[in-house]
């Protein structure tokens, strides 16, 4: 049989509980039963990886579309995808989506009264390199209102989707920007119980990522689950 090593369980408070009363959409969707703990088998240790989809270099640059340049403040978002032991997660797919600079998604159900930008789709994809690094060029997304509560506004954010090596390492998250006053008011950001864990969702301004005459740089490292210390084949 295989001598398999599972993935580490998260530290308490590192991930948001699905039941979070301040987030109205969770009220009828969050399960009420506790999930049943499952010891990792091949089913959870293996996963789809990145080979199921091809990525093109152009998909890492969101600032051009339909023959024109996207409006807004150009930014570079770069970082590494790592596991909890600091090991690079190589060749893994990073998919992103975001609102445009005016705070509007190019999506049929986004009814926010802000302009669409014909030169910006808000969709990007990139594979991490052998050292786990990735780099995206985009524009800074705008904040936008939503109807969670009176005068609710989402902080500026970029959605990130990652796979990592296994079905159990799958992660969808959001990247926020430093100094955003809306963070303190946002029930989604604040759904993460631990303040240190919450801080890991905020990118850092980085002058070394900044491209002179072109775009401000932000560093955003993403940490996926590490491996268990003991093999699963016991």
């Amino acid at each position: 049989m295989n001598s398999l090593t599972g993935y580490r369980r998260e530290a308490p408070g590192a991930h948001p509980p699905n039941t979070h009363p301040a987030y109205a959409s969770s009220h009828k969707r969050a399960p009420l039963h506790e999930p049943i703990r499952l010891a990792h088998t091949l089913s959870e240790i293996t996963g789809p990886g990145a080979g199921w989809e091809e990525t093109r270099t152009a998909e890492a640059d969101l600032t051009h579309r339909n023959g024109g340049e996207a409006l807004g403040e150009r930014i570079v978002v770069a970082g590494r995808v790592l596991d909890e032991d600091g090991r690079a997660v190589p060749h893994t797919l990073v998919e992103i989506w975001q609102a445009n600079a005016a705070g509007r998604y190019d999506h049929p159900t986004d009814r926010h009264d802000a302009p669409l930008d014909p030169h910006f789709s808000g969709i990007g994809r990139v594979l991490t390199g052998a050292d786990g690094t990735y780099r995206l060029m985009t524009v800074k997304p705008g904040a936008y209102p939503w109807r969670n509560h009176y005068n609710a506004w989402r902080p500026q954010h970029i959605h990130f989707s990652l796979f990592g090596p296994g079905f159990a390492t799958r992660l969808i998250t959001q990247m926020y920007f430093p100094g955003d006053p809306l963070l303190a008011l946002d029930p989604i950001f604040n759904s993460v119980p631990d303040a240190k864990a919450r801080a890991r969702l905020i990118a850092a301004f980085a002058i070394d990522v900044t491209v002179p005459e072109r775009a401000l740089g932000y560093r955003f490292d993403i940490v996926l689950r590490g491996r268990d210390a003991t093999p699963a084949g016991i």
Partner: peptide, 25 residues
Amino acid sequence: MASGQTPSQTIGPFFGPALIRPGLE
């Protein structure tokens, strides 16, 4: 160097054009 996991956040309602392509099902 050990560090904590990046927390999960909701996928939200606007993922479709980014993540869903015909044929993946």
